[in-house]
Simulated scan of single mutants.
Amino acid sequence: MFMAGEKVSFVAFRGINQDGGIMMAHLRKLLIVSCLLASASFAEASGVVSEQVNFLAEDGRNALIYTTSRSDYSNYNLWFRDKEGYDTEDYIKDFLYIYPYEFTWDTVSRNGYTLLKLPERSFASLEQVEFEEGVTLQVSEDGVYTYDNWGDKVKTPDGHYGLWNSPDNFQNIAYSWVFPANLEPVEYRANREGEWVRRHNTITYYGSNVNDLVFEIKYRPSSHETYEALKKKLADESQVEIAQEPTGVKLTVAATVLYPSGVAVLSDTGKSILSKVAETLKDRRNLNIIVEGHTDDVPISRRLASTFATNWELASARSINVVHFLAEEGIEESRFESAAFSFHRPVASNDTEKGKAQNRRIEMLIVESGRKG
């Protein structure tokens, strides 16, 4: 059992217990454990058919999870571990859909648990879930996501783990992931024998007579080829930070590298860096470039006030001049967006000179056409 106050992540359990029930638990960092339990009106347990579909969000860290189970049992109960200060409705605040919805609550019969009692033999739900990084989700420096449904390696009191049934195995189970356009599967495997099928942006595991299922799903942004190309092209440019984002690639260049202090005219070093960027991107016509100008919070000096009234004008001029240069290098103007944020989106504290230097920057977000960064 999980002790009070223990930090737990999202894990899904399903099981038919010794009383002839089906259990599903979502162990989450909120310390809520919800279990699906079905009471049998007959002596022998029958097979359970279950499906789970994970609709992955564009950020790669959240999902909508649709779950359904069917058996010959007469009813189901959703079990939630009691949490201090929770009303009954708080336990299902992340559920967008529950069927059947004609349920009742039982806060008495099971010590330490609140039960949501469902009167049907079939059950379906839609839940919004955030994967917990470092437990169920690992993200590498090059932007590869690895999801493990048994990330915390905690077993149930009777020794089950992952996705499970008790006392019998799943008769049939389908476990699917639906990927958004900006993410793509890399590797996927289960610890039990079964068949994987990939169709378009969906992967599905089909298993029969299986139990204690552990799934490892690896996926990455579909822009990974652009990321690798820019890393190679800019390998000698230590002043440029390249990051793989879920929706694209982000380049960050210190403003002092691109521009002399207090001006918006590109330096020779800045032109050299941007030429390499243009060479990499100009033939990738499915990609757009969003150029953002950022400053620190130091007011414009009196000497420069006639040119740039505030940091808004300075940030805007620097962003626009990057666009002009990249366009001159062969990238169509229709592929650009220019934005300025003045000092309102800092990445470091403006209380130190080091922080101010980090905040004076140009960011370029390379995204697929029609997609925002």
Rank of each mutant, 00 (worst) to 15 (best):
P167M: 05
L183V: 06
N169A: 13
D168T: 06
E195R: 06
P167R: 02
E184K: 04
V197L: 12
N172R: 11
N182D: 14
I173R: 01
Q171R: 07
N182K: 03
F179Y: 11
W164C: 09
W164V: 04
S166V: 02
S176H: 14
V197P: 12
R189H: 08
F170G: 01
A174E: 15
S166T: 05
Y175I: 04
P180F: 00
E193R: 00
W196Q: 14
W177R: 00
E195W: 08
Y175W: 05
W177E: 11
Y188L: 15
A190C: 15
N165T: 10
V178K: 07
A181N: 11
N169C: 13
P180I: 02
R192V: 14
P185E: 14
W177D: 10
P167L: 03
A181R: 04
N191W: 05
P180V: 03
A181Y: 11
A174R: 07
F170R: 00
V197C: 09
A190E: 15
P180Q: 03
P167K: 05
F170H: 02
E193Y: 04
W196H: 10
F179R: 00
A174G: 08
R192F: 12
A190I: 14
S166G: 12
N182R: 04
A181C: 09
P180A: 02
N169S: 13
Y175T: 00
N165P: 13
N172D: 14
P180Y: 01
G194Y: 05
P185S: 10
S166C: 13
N165Q: 15
N191P: 03
N165E: 15
W177Y: 15
E195C: 06
V186I: 13
A174K: 07
D168V: 02
G194A: 12
E195Y: 06
E184D: 08
N172E: 15
I173A: 06
F179G: 00
L183P: 09
E195N: 10
V186H: 08
A181K: 05
R192C: 12
N182M: 08
Y188E: 15
E187P: 03
N172Y: 13
S166F: 00
P185R: 06
N165M: 09
W177G: 00
P180N: 02
N172Q: 13
A190V: 14
N182H: 06
P167A: 04
L163P: 02
S166P: 01
N182Y: 08
D168A: 04
S166W: 00
A190R: 05
E187I: 08
D168N: 09
E187R: 04
A174H: 08
E193I: 07
R189E: 15
V186L: 14
E184M: 09
L183K: 01
V186M: 13
W196P: 00
I173K: 00
V197F: 05
N169W: 00
V197G: 09
R189D: 14
E184N: 06
D168Y: 07
E195M: 11
W196L: 15
F170S: 01
E187S: 07
A181H: 06
